[in-house]
């Protein structure tokens, strides 16, 4: 493997909280090839979203950094498009206008009016949403809105597609449907994808590589697993596939045997099971003080006028 497409080196992330510094990430290292589909999996609060936000440029790493195609990532940008967990469409714009906002911004100088229109419709067709271009996000289902979110991200022609639990808020059937759609699109475009997930099956089905993170605080990359399954993959056929079963087994064992669910296990059992630094930290923080992914995300935006 020559130079990696995307590289995270020695990333630490500390947040200032009223109770002092909170170390969310401790020395995260990650190399990603072009066209690779990588899933980040781990228990909630382990800093998966923080990693993604650092790659997106929405957060600045306290130490270490992220390099994409030889350029350091400091600010957010459309070449690292993000698909948010809750679609994040502008509720006052129609489906078409939401994608248009992105296309107008990214290609405002390079595309003609007609090219832009064709490109918007092309991306909406890709996610099978061409029938609802004049609907507003409030008028379509969550799954449809998430498709539009993906279309918007793809329309930016990103070199990395970042997905923050893109299917987490959807029901199982819709989720399966969108996973298949995403697999097809990714194979067509050969895009590089980093996806956060809680779902072991989703990770194994979609990924070339699964990055498993240790529990926070001071989370880091625990194990990596290459999923050597031929593409295109079929979820039904894979159910009995020995490689698939093995991968699934490996992730499950990491999540439920090596990393206990934070907050759920008795402090006594935590102490007996593992004596790493990170687990000692878990005891110091009560569950209430450990910020969830969501709270960490919200912090920089918090404003109040009393």
């Amino acid at each position: 493997m020559n130079k990696p497409h995307l590289e995270l080196t020695g990333v630490d992330m500390a947040f200032d909280t009223p109770k002092g510094q909170f170390l969310a990430l401790d020395n995260v290292n990650l190399k990603i090839r072009k066209g690779e589909f990588v899933s980040l999996i781990g228990h909630s609060g382990c800093g998966k979203s923080t990693v993604l936000n650092i790659v997106a440029g929405l957060l600045q790493a306290t130490r270490g950094g992220c390099v994409l195609d030889g350029h350091e990532v400091n600010t957010p940008g459309p070449e690292r498009a993000v698909v948010f967990q809750h679609h994040a469409l502008m509720p006052w714009l129609t489906v078409y206008e939401n994608v248009e906002l992105a296309v107008n911004q990214v290609f405002r100088k390079t595309m003609s009016k007609k090219e832009k229109r064709d490109w918007i419709l092309h991306n909406l067709t890709l996610v099978n949403m061409q029938h609802a271009i004049d609907k507003r996000p409030g008028e379509i289902s969550g799954g449809m809105a998430q498709r539009v979110g993906i279309a918007r991200a793809l329309s930016m022609k990103p070199s990395v597609l970042l997905m923050d639990e893109p299917f987490g808020a959807l029901d199982a059937l819709t989720r399966a449907h969108l996973q298949d759609a995403l697999m097809a699109i990714q194979q067509d475009l050969n895009s590089t994808v980093i996806m956060i997930t809680h779902d072991v099956d989703e990770a194994v089905l979609l990924s070339d590589r699964i990055v498993m993170m240790t529990n926070g605080p001071a989370a880091s990359v625990g194990e990596e697993l290459h999923v050597d399954l031929p593409r295109p993959r079929n979820r039904v056929a894979l159910a009995d596939d020995p490689t698939y079963v093995h991968c699934r087994q490996a992730v499950l064992s990491f999540l439920y045997e090596k990393q206990t669910f934070p907050g759920k296990s008795e402090p006594a059992s935590t102490a007996t099971e593992a004596s790493t630094d990170s687990n000692a930290e878990v005891e110091a923080h009560t569950p209430a003080t450990v910020p969830t992914d969501r709270e960490v995300n919200d912090q920089p935006q918090q404003r109040a006028i009393a």
Partner: peptide, 20 residues
């Protein structure tokens, strides 16, 4: 001012990703 301060942080992030 309340309305402006309460813009969904996700939407603000979309705007940042787009470099508006």
């Amino acid at each position: 001012s309340f309305g402006v301060a309460a813009v969904d942080p996700d939407l603000v992030n979309v705007s940042r990703v787009l470099r508006l």
